[in-house]
Deep mutational scan, measured.
Amino acid sequence: MALNTPQITPTKKITVRAIGEELPRGDYQRCPQCDMLFSLPEINSHQSAYCPRCQAKIRDGRDWSLTRLAAMAFTMLLLMPFAWGEPLLHIWLLGIRIDANVMQGIWQMTKQGDAITGSMVFFCVIGAPLILVTSIAYLWFGNRLGMNLRPVLLMLERLKEWVMLDIYLVGIGVASIKVQDYAHIQAGVGLFSFVALVILTTVTLSHLNVEELWERFYPQRPATRRDEKLRVCLGCHFTGYPDQRGRCPRCHIPLRLRRRHSLQKCWAALLASIVLLLPANLLPISIIYLNGGRQEDTILSGIMSLASSNIAVAGIVFIASILVPFTKVIVMFTLLLSIHFKCQQGLRTRILLLRMVTWIGRWSMLDLFVISLTMSLINRDQILAFTMGPAAFYFGAAVILTILAVEWLDSRLLWDAHESGNARFDD
């Protein structure tokens, strides 16, 4: 018995066209964080690309023209004298008006014999932002004059995390709450300039795509075929072959399989920071003279006294001054041990922890910024005066060393310790 099946006739004509040209192939790229070699397709503007294995951002879609970056830099340069030299806060102490600005706080630190601690604050609040705007201006002028731009481009990517104007702005709020127990506070004209400078700096850093600047100024022929001998440069993120001198053909720094002496430098910085954190938390970090009496505060006791007036601000200072430094030390110690013992479990967790400490590390400088600003506000000789204690130097040095330890660690070593050939990683 035959089955009668109805015929289905399409209502619209289906047209099949042959592909007349070869589909576009992607360029081969190595991930600078996990060293995976993959094919990167062509990316349009405002599109980002991520590593298929570790999800690290390979290409950032946010990109401004150099002219727009230069305009932002010149605007920031105009704001800087007002943000640093004009009063941020006014207080009335014992019937006398006192003005506080950024430069005055750094000068008070240096004047009291601790120039190293003052230079830490100076670099993060004044030096690094000033280098940022002058570097962008150098790129703008240098591109037109045919100057060598490689050193500036190499420095810009590392400079971003040292620009800490946003953290200093939080420190202004913390210092205001600490001082309000002794005097009446009012915002100064410099505060508005400083807030504007923070906003412009944040926007500029978020749109400063150094890798795209490398592509514009020093374009290189990408690798179009897969080759395990391809290496990625950690300076400019170019994937290719080393030249005859073993250097990256684009930025001219040595092109090595792994960062040289990464573990040794990381261990040295980490152990030194552990040693410095002990006096930083045991010795007094601030000293207040009130009517001839002397009151010393460690980091913890200062947080407890701050909690009596504002528990939320005390929580912020606790996280930045105690929780973050010790968390960074514990995480980095764990990561280094996992590399030495070739741990194969929990790779995803370790990668996330490394990215976390990379982002939060700079916030530990908050305590030094609060001390710097408070020193310029309260300084009335023996009637009422505020000065920093010996722990300030140890704390600042420990924070900087932990930042350097994270920067010096080559994250690809975590993958080397893991089993080879993993296309995915999980716990």
Score class of each variant (00 low, 15 high):
1 M>E: 00
1 M>Y: 00
2 A>W: 03
3 L>E: 11
6 P>V: 06
9 T>K: 12
12 K>C: 03
16 V>I: 05
19 I>H: 07
23 L>C: 11
24 P>M: 07
24 P>V: 04
25 R>C: 08
27 D>Y: 03
30 R>L: 08
32 P>Q: 06
34 C>I: 00
35 D>P: 03
38 F>I: 06
40 L>Y: 07
40 L>A: 08
46 H>L: 07
47 Q>M: 04
48 S>R: 11
51 C>F: 07
53 R>I: 07
55 Q>C: 10
57 K>S: 05
63 D>I: 14
64 W>H: 08
67 T>A: 09
70 A>H: 11
72 M>C: 06
72 M>L: 06
77 L>C: 12
77 L>W: 07
78 L>W: 09
78 L>V: 04
80 M>A: 07
81 P>K: 12
85 G>D: 07
85 G>W: 03
87 P>V: 03
87 P>M: 06
93 L>C: 01
93 L>V: 02
94 L>T: 01
95 G>K: 09
95 G>M: 06
96 I>W: 03
99 D>F: 05
99 D>R: 12
101 N>A: 03
104 Q>C: 07
106 I>R: 08
108 Q>D: 14
108 Q>S: 13
110 T>D: 15
110 T>R: 14
111 K>R: 12
112 Q>V: 07
113 G>V: 09
113 G>W: 09
116 I>F: 03
117 T>E: 10
120 M>A: 04
124 C>K: 04
124 C>D: 09
126 I>A: 15
131 I>R: 00
132 L>C: 05
133 V>R: 00
139 L>Y: 03
141 F>G: 06
142 G>F: 09
143 N>M: 14
145 L>I: 13
148 N>S: 04
150 R>D: 04
151 P>W: 03
156 L>A: 07
157 E>G: 12
159 L>S: 03
161 E>F: 02
161 E>L: 12
165 L>T: 13
166 D>V: 15
166 D>E: 15
167 I>E: 08
168 Y>L: 08
169 L>S: 03
171 G>W: 00
171 G>L: 00
176 S>Q: 08
177 I>G: 09
177 I>F: 12
182 Y>T: 13
184 H>I: 05
185 I>Q: 06
187 A>M: 14
189 V>F: 14
195 V>E: 03
195 V>K: 02
202 T>I: 13
202 T>L: 15
203 V>Q: 04
211 E>Q: 13
213 L>T: 15
214 W>A: 15
214 W>I: 15
215 E>I: 13
216 R>H: 13
216 R>K: 13
219 P>I: 11
220 Q>S: 13
221 R>I: 14
223 A>L: 13
223 A>C: 13
225 R>W: 13
227 D>H: 15
231 R>L: 10
233 C>W: 00
234 L>C: 13
235 G>M: 02
239 T>W: 03
240 G>L: 07
242 P>L: 13
242 P>A: 14
244 Q>I: 08
247 R>F: 13
249 P>D: 11
250 R>N: 05
250 R>D: 01
253 I>Q: 09
257 L>W: 14
258 R>K: 08
262 S>R: 04
262 S>A: 13
267 W>C: 15
268 A>T: 09
269 A>N: 04
272 A>V: 03
272 A>T: 13
274 I>L: 15
275 V>L: 09
278 L>D: 04
281 N>E: 05
286 S>L: 01
286 S>C: 06
287 I>A: 05
288 I>D: 00
288 I>M: 01
290 L>C: 06
291 N>C: 13
292 G>L: 14
293 G>T: 10
293 G>Y: 09
295 Q>K: 10
297 D>M: 08
297 D>V: 05
298 T>M: 12
300 L>E: 05
306 L>S: 00
308 S>E: 12
308 S>T: 13
309 S>L: 01
309 S>V: 03
315 G>A: 15
316 I>T: 15
317 V>K: 00
317 V>C: 01
317 V>S: 00
318 F>K: 05
319 I>H: 08
322 I>W: 09
323 L>Y: 02
325 P>Q: 02
326 F>A: 11
329 V>W: 10
330 I>G: 12
330 I>W: 15
333 F>E: 08
334 T>F: 12
336 L>Q: 11
338 S>K: 12
343 C>K: 14
346 G>R: 14
347 L>A: 14
348 R>I: 12
353 L>T: 13
357 V>M: 10
357 V>H: 02
357 V>K: 06
358 T>E: 12
358 T>S: 09
358 T>G: 12
359 W>Q: 10
360 I>N: 02
364 S>D: 00
366 L>M: 08
367 D>Y: 00
368 L>M: 10
368 L>A: 07
369 F>D: 07
371 I>Y: 01
373 L>Y: 04
373 L>K: 07
383 I>R: 02
383 I>D: 00
383 I>E: 01
387 T>P: 00
387 T>I: 14
389 G>S: 02
390 P>M: 09
393 F>G: 11
394 Y>F: 07
400 I>Q: 08
404 L>K: 08
406 V>C: 08
407 E>T: 12
409 L>I: 09
411 S>P: 08
414 L>M: 10
415 W>E: 06
416 D>Q: 09
416 D>G: 09
418 H>W: 11
421 G>W: 10
424 R>H: 10
427 D>K: 14
